[in-house]
Amino acid sequence: MNLFRLVADLMHLVSIFILLLKMQKTRSVAGRCSRISFKTQALYATVFLTRYTDLFANFQSLYNTTMKVFFIASSLYIVFLMKFKFKATNDPRLDTFKAQYVVGGAAALALIVNYAFTVQEVLWTFSIYLEAVAILPQLFMLTKTGEAEVITTHYLFALGTYRGLYLVNWIYRYWTEYYVDWIVWIAGAVQTGLYCDFFYIYFTKVLKGAKFELP
C-alpha cells in the first residue's frame, strides 16, 4: 500500500458518501437541475460484484476486505434507494445511454484480452473494463441536462480523482517494485481520460463559484 492508493481509495469513499448525502438531503435522485444516472450506479454495483468474487478466498488485509465489503454494500444500497425508495424521482427518459453496449463491449473484450481464461479472472477483467466506462451514462446525462448541482460536480470530482490517483499509484509501484499490470493501466487511463473535459469545467467554473454549465 502507498499513500497515492490510500488517498485514492479515500476519494472513492468520499464520492460514495457525497452521493448518499445528496440523496438523503434532497430525498430524491433528481435535484433542481441535476440528476443521478441509475444506469451508472447499477454498473458500479456490477463492477464490484464481478471484481470481488475473491472476497473470501483471497485475504489481502483487513483494510482490503473491509473496503470490498463496503463497496459492494454501498453500491447495492444506492441502487436500492434509486430503484425503490426514490423511484418517483427517477426519470428513465433522461437516462438514455445504451448501457448494454458498454456491458457487451467489456464482456467481449474480457473474453479476448485477459491474464487467464478462468471464470474468476475473466470476471475480474470484465469489471476492470466496465469500470472504465461505467461513468458514461452519468456524463451523458449531464450533457443532456446541460448543467449539474454543485454537489453532483463534487461527486464526479471525487470519483474522477480516485482513478486518477490510481494512475499515480501505478507509476509509483512500477518505479519501486516493477509492478506491471497492462489491463488496469490502460483501463485506468481511459477511465480518467473520460473525466478530462469535466475536470476542465470543474476547475474553471465550479471552483470559481460559477454554476456548472456545459458550453
Binding site: D54, N58, Q60, M67, F71, Y115, W124, D181
Partner: peptide, 10 residues
Amino acid sequence: EENTRKHDEL
C-alpha cells in the same frame, strides 16, 4: 502469467 497473481488492489 504472473499477472494472475492474487489481485492485491481494490
